[in-house]
Simulated scan of single mutants.
Amino acid sequence: MADPNILNPHPPEFDRFLHASVGEDRNGYAVTVLSTLARLGLDPWIETAELVTLGRDGAQVRLGALLARFHDVPALVKDHGTVAQSLSQLLPEGQTSGSLKRAASTVTHGRPGTSGAIWAVLAIIFVLFQMLMGGGSGE
């Protein structure tokens, strides 16, 4: 039977954490944890999986350090510790899905996920197809 999460390979347990607000940016728009991590140049799902493996206290410290580096939300400058504490409570713990365990395992063991390999192969096939189609039309 096919994996039911094939179209959404990210653990659903991360959603509540990743979609939580960290505050408003200078333009008045709500900024989520997901966009914060992405703006810091991090993969939000990998970083969240790593935070989960650290436990609540370790995650709070790491998240506080990340939020301290993020300057798009002015309120975080003085309040990043409190925000990190409340956000760390949204991280999943206890019973977790298979996808969460796979994501955390990938982070701790350093092995890339198979979905990345699949996308890479598909991208190569697409490029080759484009080259074949483009090569014949230049006459």
Rank of each mutant, 00 (worst) to 15 (best):
M1S: 14
M1E: 14
A2E: 15
A2H: 10
L7S: 12
N8C: 13
N8Q: 15
N8K: 15
H10V: 13
D15R: 12
D15P: 01
L18D: 07
L18A: 00
S21M: 01
V22T: 00
G23M: 08
E24V: 09
Y29I: 07
V31L: 00
T32P: 02
L34Q: 14
T36H: 04
A38V: 06
A38G: 07
R39N: 14
W45F: 10
E47M: 06
E47Y: 02
T48W: 05
T48Y: 02
T53E: 04
L54R: 15
G55V: 04
R56I: 05
D57P: 01
D57H: 10
A59M: 03
A59I: 08
Q60D: 13
Q60E: 15
R62P: 06
L66Q: 09
L66E: 05
R69Y: 01
H71M: 07
H71L: 10
H71V: 11
D72R: 15
P74M: 07
P74T: 03
V77D: 11
D79H: 12
H80M: 02
G81S: 06
L87I: 02
S88E: 08
L90F: 09
L91V: 13
Q95W: 09
S97P: 01
S105G: 14
S105F: 11
R111K: 06
G113I: 01
T114W: 05
S115K: 07
S115Y: 14
A120Y: 04
I124F: 10
V127F: 11
V127Q: 06
L128V: 09
L128P: 01
F129Q: 11
F129I: 11
L132G: 14
